[in-house]
Write a protein that binds this DNA or RNA. Structure first.
Lengths: 142, 142
DNA sequence: CCGATATCAAGAATTATTCTAATTATCGTT
DNA sequence: AACGATAATTAGAATAATTCTTGATATCGG
């Protein structure tokens, strides 16, 4: 009793292919959902949300889709300590601030013109392929 | 058949208490080992090394000790993506560069005088309690 | 030395994630 | 539109790191 309809993009405006990745119904829905509420959900949170639109989706598929999207550079995987991975459609180079009180995660941009090698004492010859900056703290009412 | 001898520190020069944490034989050995080769071992690597001196030590104890040391700010726990946690006795505020070719992890210091808020666009009112900066890349012979 | 408390050890339990195998969908070709 | 090839999805089993549980040991203060 699974839908046999072809990929539908009309409502969501998500194309049939992104960065060489075929956007199946499931990938589309997961991507749409990440874009629509950008609150850095875990795979399991994505799974629960996706079930509204795709009641038959499985958690394995959510993991598969998230991995495919990450591999193709369409979304980013974010890790905090040893917690479940979270997923983020913001492709700008940025870090994350994790509010320990509320659990809310804020994207943190670099100030314009900042160059990593001005800030960090990198080993000579280091070619950076990926950066992960995560901050944990409190947000004080100011 | 477990040793009943009291804490011995003579050889290692590690005091009986650090930062309010009682340095038992196991904690002492684990700490010594981290200081002696600073290669960011995993809990399991620490376990294997610790067995040379403490053949009866258990993996659970290694985890307990590492956690106690981390909780008391004596060592730091370092995470790369979803890999096993690694442990590091370097308490300076620093990041890590993970050489994807060799797997070697290099400590990366901040350049002197750098202030995080000059570099990052932090949310207003953010009070940072912990920073984790991890870089992944290659080391090119220069 | 004695009881109270902390630590340790062994193995079971947990949890996020990955793997496996079978089904289903899609694509390019007729 | 049907066909075979390939890719994606599903459900559930398997894995791996870590945490928990419970009983034994060790240490501390008196």
């Amino acid at each position: 009793m699974v839908s046999h309809s072809p990929i539908q993009k009309s409502a969501s405006e998500i194309p049939e292919e992104i960065a060489g990745l075929r956007m199946t119904r499931q990938r589309q829905e997961i991507y749409r959902l990440l874009i629509e509420h950008r609150d850095h959900p875990t795979a399991n949170e994505v799974f629960m949300r996706a079930k509204d639109q795709l009641p038959n989706i499985s958690l394995a598929t959510v993991y598969n889709c998230l991995e495919a999207l990450v591999q193709h550079g369409i979304i980013r995987q974010v890790n905090f300590e040893r917690e479940s991975s979270r997923y983020c459609p913001n492709l700008r180079e940025h870090g994350h601030f994790h509010d320990a009180m509320t659990g809310v995660i804020h994207d943190v941009d670099f100030k314009p013109g900042v160059n990593l090698s001005d800030v960090l004492d990198l080993p000579p010859g280091a070619v950076i392929e990926d950066i992960e900056i995560t901050l944990r703290g409190k947000l004080i009412a100011s």
